[in-house]
Amino acid sequence: MSQAVAVPEDMEQVYAYPRSLTQANSHYCPGCVHGIVHRLVAEVIDELGIREKTIGVAPVGCAVLVYNYINTDFVEAAHGRAPAMATGIKRVSPDKIVFTYQGDGDLAAIGTAEIIHAANRGERITTVFINNAIYGMTGGQMAPTTLEGMITTSTPGGRDHLLAGYPMRMSEILAQTAGAVYVAREAALDLAGIRRTKRAIKRAFLAQIHGLGFASVEVLATCPTNWGLDPWAAMQWAKENLGAFYPLDTFKITDEVKALPV
């Protein structure tokens, strides 16, 4: 703590640094929503008391260094292959809690096959999927989730469906699979949304703890740097535009998952 301030005796701590987050300073740009969602995952791991038996699988993309920040065991997967790697780990060590943390470039493009089949097989893993409609790390190119008309470095005139196809709603696709027990989309773009996102992530982890099947949470996020907006303006833009195309909803929830105490 940089400030040495005495806390009055009649004050109680209402927010403290999560134990499952390392002290490392993140490499993310100022205002990046990855930081918020990392923190939510760490808080959920703290609350469920599963840090010592959790194994994360890191993606390729901006969140490639997530293993430096969330303080659980981690492995790094090849681009898009996190669900396949998580499948292997979970099957070898079914008593571990295994989660993947993936961006839209990782999960919705090169990793589409892996995520759909992992969900369809009903692998008992948890996926946190960050959708900011752009490739961040490589310099702001179009992702499968980029909205029509959105300007990126590879669609300088705006995404045109005749040339680049339509944006993809991954959660709606995953909800079609028989093996998925919980598929939800939330937005970490305001306080209420951040709280809802945390509840959804907790539910997705609980579904795995109870051995119910595949669970995923898509989180709408921002990329202030590549969108060319300041962090606050990016959040407002995302609520208005991403929110319009990607509805916030629980697309699939089985009765067993619904009954879990979150």
């Binding site: 009649d10 109680e12 209402v14 927010y15 918020i36 923190r39 305001d190 306080l191």
Partner: peptide, 23 residues
């Protein structure tokens, strides 16, 4: 002491205290 700042901060900068209910 509402902790809104802590909820939105991507870099976990804040530690928040609030006076107990009685006081």
């Amino acid at each position: 002491g509402c902790a809104s700042c802590a909820m939105i901060c991507p870099d976990v900068v804040f530690t928040v205290y609030r006076r107990r209910r009685e006081t």
